[in-house]
C-alpha cells in the first residue's frame, strides 16, 4: 500500500509493504543513500535519522508506523545551524577514517545537541554510545561535539 511520509520537508509517496524499514525505503525506493546500512538490528547507529527531531534507527522503523511524524535525514542536516556547526567541526577535527558511520554519528550528535545544548563529557559518551565507529574515531567525535558545545557557550555569553 502507499504511504505518504514527510522526508526533509517534502511529502514522499512510498508504495511499500508496511513492515519495510524506513532505511530500505530511503535507499532503494527514493535513492537517498546518505543514510547507511550497518547492522539491520538497531545495534550500530549507522542508519540514524531524526523522527520529529529524535534520533531513531531507520533500519528498525517500519514505514507503516511513521504516520505524520517528520523524518529528517543526513541530506538535510545542513539546513539546521547545529547541523552545519557539527559538519564544520567534523572537518576541523578531521574526525573520520573510512567515514561510513559518520552520517549516523552526525545525526545522533545533532539530535543530542538539539535536546541538550550543553552536554557534559559523560552525557556525550552516553548519548553517542549507540553509534559504532569501527575505525574508532571516538576521541575526535568527542572533540568535535565539544567544540560545537563550546562555540554555543561563547555565543550565549
Amino acid at each position: 500500500m502507499a504511504y505518504r511520509v514527510e522526508i526533509n520537508g517534502e511529502a514522499r509517496e512510498l508504495d511499500v509493504p508496511a513492515d519495510m524499514p524506513l532505511l530500505w525505503a530511503l535507499r532503494n525506493e527514493l535513492g537517498m543513500v546518505g543514510t547507511k546500512f550497518g547492522c539491520g538490528i538497531g545495534a550500530c547507529g549507522a542508519c540514524t535519522v531524526h523522527v520529529d527531531g529524535v534520533a531513531t534507527r531507520s533500519c528498525s522503523l517500519r514505514v507503516g508506523s511513521i504516520g505524520d511524524r517528520k523524518i529528517t535525514t543526513i541530506e538535510a542536516l545542513e539546513e539546521s545551524p547545529v547541523g552545519r556547526a557539527l559538519q564544520q567541526a567534523w572537518l576541523d577535527e578531521d574526525v573520520m577514517q573510512c567515514g561510513y558511520c559518520q552520517a549516523g554519528q552526525l545525526m545522533n550528535a545533532s539530535a543530542l545537541l538539539a535536546r541538550n545544548p550543553q552536554p557534559n563529557a559523560q552525557q556525550i559518551d552516553q548519548a553517542m554510545s549507540g553509534n559504532i565507529c569501527r575505525c574508532a574515531c571516538y576521541t575526535r567525535i568527542r572533540k568535535a561535539i565539544v567544540a560545537v558545545v563550546e562555540q554555543k557557550e561563547t555565543a550565549n555569553v
Binding site: 535513492g31 543513500v33 546518505g34 543514510t35 547507511k36 546500512f37 535525514t73 543526513i74 541530506e75 542536516l77 545542513e78 557539527l86 559538519q87 567534523w90 572537518l91 576541523d92 578531521d94 574526525v95 573520520m96 567515514g99 561510513y100 559518520q102 552520517a103 552526525l106
Partner: peptide, 22 residues
C-alpha cells in the same frame, strides 16, 4: 595536518561508498 579529501562530501551524506552505487 590536512583533512581527508572526501570528508566534505561524507558529512553531507553524498554517495561515494560502494553501497551507494546506483
Amino acid at each position: 595536518a590536512i583533512g581527508g579529501i572526501d570528508s566534505g562530501r561524507i558529512v553531507k551524506g553524498e554517495p561515494i561508498f560502494g553501497l551507494d552505487t546506483q
